[in-house]
Computed example of a mutant assay.
Amino acid sequence: MIRIFLFLLTNFSIIILLFILSVLFGLHNRSLLYIICSTIITGFTGSIISLLLSKKIALFTVGGKIITEPKNELEEWVLKIIKKQSLRLNVSNPEFAIYDSESVNAFATGYSKNSSLIAISSMLLKNMNKKEIEAIIAHEMSHISNGDMVTMTLIQGVVNTFTIFLSRGIAYIICNIFLKSDTTSNKNKTDYVILTFILELIFGIAASCITMWFSRKREFYADASAAKLSSTKNMISALKSLQNYTDLSNEPKNVHALCINGKINSFLDLFSTHPPINVRIQALNKKKYM
């Protein structure tokens, strides 16, 4: 979940920054050609930059440390498992990082299959047995092998483009057709900018449902791939263990969004990056997505 959260956060921040810069430098032109060109550029810029910086941002955010020289038997074992699974999946060996956290968590990120990172929380390594850890690593390796971050970038770029295009197009129609105001006046320009920004926020929230739907779907495929790499029994055991570590009451609220599992209501399920764990276990038992 962390990789998706950070990707979306960075992507959204870059788009907002580009929007502000376009306003400050007077580049918020309303011609149809400009709208089409600028929406494509702006839509994909945030996603691509987020992808390229994904490893550095993730490590900085969680305070992770890359392990090159193992300090104990467990770290050495994890590195061997990652190497073993990389060979089976025919991808370059990902970097391995550990970060201190009270939550049981792990994530994978990177801009390509051959430039990736797997980060595991210290609490996960402490509380799970080796078979469960191997299944968790297999799950993250599956995300890398499936190219989920690249696919997410393409989807987010398309979603961003439609969001920006619709926002600017509708704002243009409202200001110039319905309001019939002077397009050269400063007031109309201000109205257009404000209306565009509001519409981008609204459409952005709606569009995030599409991105989150893809994220939830990919979790099922990653679970299935992990079951093949490790075993279905190990993957189910790992998921059941995650259910025992969902209490975040003693952690800062800004950490809650990074948790791999959590209680959400039916409405907010639309914005959830992961399906409920019990549903994922059922899918494995029924051998779906395999």
Rank of each mutant, 00 (worst) to 15 (best):
V255W: 09
T196K: 07
I36D: 01
D100H: 09
L27F: 15
K233L: 07
F60T: 09
A257I: 15
I202W: 06
R218E: 03
Y34M: 03
A171W: 06
Q156S: 05
L179P: 13
I35M: 15
A283V: 13
G169N: 00
E73G: 07
K71A: 05
T232I: 11
K228H: 10
I133H: 08
S115C: 11
R218K: 03
A171S: 15
S225D: 09
V193D: 15
L59M: 08
D247Y: 07
T61H: 02
S115K: 12
S115R: 13
V62I: 02
A227P: 02
K65D: 13
T273R: 02
L9Q: 08
F178K: 12
L24E: 00
A138W: 00
D191M: 15
W213C: 01
A227Y: 01
R3T: 15
H256K: 14
R280S: 15
V62K: 09
F12A: 03
L32A: 05
V193H: 04
K84M: 13
N265K: 10
F271D: 01
S167D: 15
N278V: 15
I49W: 05
E69Q: 14
H143G: 05
I277N: 03
N90P: 01
I81C: 02
K71F: 12
L258I: 10
T42I: 07
S272D: 11
I67Y: 10
Y245E: 05
N90K: 13
K288D: 13
K56T: 13
Y245L: 09
F267V: 09
A108S: 14
K240V: 13
S116P: 02
I205P: 01
I40Y: 04
S92D: 11
T151Q: 04
S121Y: 13
G63L: 03
S208L: 10
K83D: 12
I49M: 05
G43S: 12
S121A: 11
E134I: 06
A171L: 11
L248N: 12
T109E: 00
T232W: 07
A171R: 06
N285S: 13
T68Q: 02
E75Q: 07
N146C: 00
I144D: 06
I205C: 10
I198D: 04
L53E: 00
T184K: 10
A97E: 04
Y289C: 15
G63W: 08
N244R: 10
T232F: 10
A222M: 09
M1C: 06
N186Y: 15
L201H: 01
N244Q: 14
